[in-house]
């Protein structure tokens, strides 16, 4: 049920934003209190890479930026 969540490094995050030509607040969000982030060292503004198992594409990658509460 819960796909893989990983934190993107600062450099990777910058690369991503440039690739899609977006700023962080245009990305989908995930709250800092989300249970999946409990054991990760993250802070608001970090970008989380989510690798979903998709029935249509096999595997799909989704990004969420951490928002406060």
């Amino acid at each position: 049920m819960v796909p893989k969540h990983e934190k993107l490094s600062k450099a990777k995050a910058k690369e991503l934003l440039e690739k899609y030509n977006v700023v962080p607040n245009q990305l989908p969000q995930i709250t800092l209190t989300d249970p999946t982030l409990e054991n990760m060292e993250v802070e608001a503004g970090d970008i989380i890479k989510i690798t979903r198992k998709s029935p249509t594409a096999g595997e799909s990658v989704y990004y969420r930026v951490i928002s406060i509460g």
């Binding site: 049920m1 819960v2 796909p3 709250t31 249970p35 999946t36 989510i50 979903r52 969420r64």
Partner: peptide
């Protein structure tokens, strides 16, 4: 725990997060 679920979506959100 990886394949057990509830049909209450808010409960899934509280326990397992947005993606779940």
């Amino acid at each position: 725990p990886t394949r057990t679920f509830s049909n209450n979506i808010h409960e899934m959100f509280r326990v397992l997060g947005v993606e779940a």
